Simulated assay, not measured.
Amino acid sequence: MHLTRARIAALPKIVLHDHLDGGLRPATVIDLSRELGIDPPGTDAQQVADWFHDAADSGSLPSYLSTFERTVALMQTAPQLRRVAREFALDMAADGVVYAETRWAPHQHTEGALSLAEAVQAVQDGLDEGVAAVEAGGGRIVVGQLLCYLRHLDPSEDLVEIALALRAAGPREGAPAASAGVVGLDLAGPEAGFPASRFAAPFARARAEGLRVTLHAGEADGPASIADALDTGAERLGHGVRLVEDLDPAHGDALGPVAARVHRERICLEVCPSSNLQTGVAATIAEHPVGRLHRAGFALALSSDNRLMSRTRTSRETSLVAQELDWGVDELEQVALTALANGFAPAPLREALAEEVVRPAHAAARRQL
């Protein structure tokens, strides 16, 4: 039976790829803009939402990324960062998400005189507040943060030091048990022309210290960029969808060397379909690589990437793909469990969600069909 959007939305979601500065509420954009004396890009929430979506709907990654100048400018003080992080946790829970990692680049948030460590702590405080509010309302969610280096900046080890200080090592004093702290590191920003290997030293140290690593690759560049990210220590790939260029359609989508490596090592692809349409990876969901990659047996997770710029949520992304590819409960459960297995929060938190939330919800959905 074809699953309706309502049935899909009711299933628990796992989010591995969502940018903190790409998910501000339109009303929050208005509030923070006015606090700073900046004209918001609209007089009401609908106009703001339309402006961001239209500006990001450019067909290229650099143009898409330019919209973040607006949101980053609103996230330069501890109260601003704390508010956006708190609302992230609340909005994820409202969308049926039970596990979420939010990623952001602290180096972009020090213009208001915050140190990198103070900025990261402000985000953590907001996430803690959001998780506590979800739990107080009877909900359940595990949340962690990923700290992003930016490809076009110089490599450093400062984020490694901060991640080690706030790493996800179990419950922290005064914080909800489900607020996992810093769960890993990422590399974001313009991909073409800025190889991940420039950051080999900090990521090698991160891996040696037991920190988890996911790198953006295979979004605005092809298989060579993916191979470079893997050589730099990537355990997951942010997007990774241009891996499809290493599949040979003339021979049943036979795997080339990079694709074979990703498949063999079960590297999870953090797929975000709507943002990929905006940056030119594909023109429609039907043409998006997710279908071919799924049929070829790659490990996939579905996420929202930038909810403001793409005017989306993870439940919407899941519905778009599931309805286009005619996925049923089994496929949706597989994707959710794959995402959860590849999360970076402590294993006991993720395993409890799998056994107590994800599997029972999908079993119930099967019985209702």
Rank of each mutant, 00 (worst) to 15 (best):
V183R: 01
L325P: 08
A339G: 15
I162G: 04
D128M: 03
G139R: 04
H53E: 14
N342L: 04
T284A: 09
T284N: 10
Q278D: 05
A347E: 15
A192K: 13
A301E: 05
E333M: 07
G256P: 12
Q278E: 07
S303R: 00
L81C: 08
V262N: 01
G37A: 07
E351S: 11
L300G: 06
R295L: 06
A200F: 09
A220T: 11
A6R: 14
G96F: 09
Y99E: 11
L215M: 06
L320I: 01
D221N: 11
G138C: 07
A188C: 13
A259Q: 06
R350G: 08
V213T: 06
T77V: 06
A296Q: 13
Y149L: 09
R261M: 02
E287W: 00
V143K: 12
I267W: 08
G252S: 06
R207S: 07
K13R: 13
Q323H: 05
G210V: 04
E209D: 12
A119G: 15
R295C: 03
D221F: 08
D154P: 09
L255F: 12
L16K: 01
P195R: 11
G137C: 04
R83L: 15
S58L: 05
W104Y: 15
G137R: 02
V97S: 11
R367K: 13
H294S: 14
L320T: 01
Y99P: 12
D125E: 14
V321N: 05
L114V: 11
L114N: 13
W327H: 05
E191V: 01
G238V: 03
Q80A: 15
G343H: 10
L153T: 13
R311F: 01
A122E: 10
N276G: 05
R198G: 00
R151C: 01
R167H: 13
T314F: 03
R266M: 00
R359D: 04
A224Y: 00
G22H: 06
A259D: 07
T110Y: 09
I226D: 02
Q46H: 13
R313S: 15
A354I: 01
L116G: 07
G130C: 10
P348G: 11
A56Y: 09
M75Q: 14
H362N: 03
D125Q: 14
A354H: 00
T214G: 14
R7Y: 00
H263F: 05
M92F: 13
S197W: 09
D39F: 02
E69I: 03
E356Q: 15
L11C: 08
D305R: 02
A100Q: 04
R140H: 14
Q121D: 15
L90S: 06
G256I: 03
E356W: 03
R70M: 13
A322S: 10
S66R: 12
L269F: 07
D95Y: 09
G170V: 03
R242H: 11
A206N: 01
E101C: 06
A204Q: 13
E287A: 14
A339Q: 13
I267F: 12
L61V: 04
D228E: 07
L277N: 08
P223H: 08
P360W: 00
N276V: 03
E135V: 09
A229D: 04
D330P: 02
G297D: 00
H294W: 15
G280C: 08
D39P: 10
A117L: 05
L150K: 02
T279R: 05
V97T: 14
G59M: 08
I14P: 07
P223Q: 08
A364N: 05
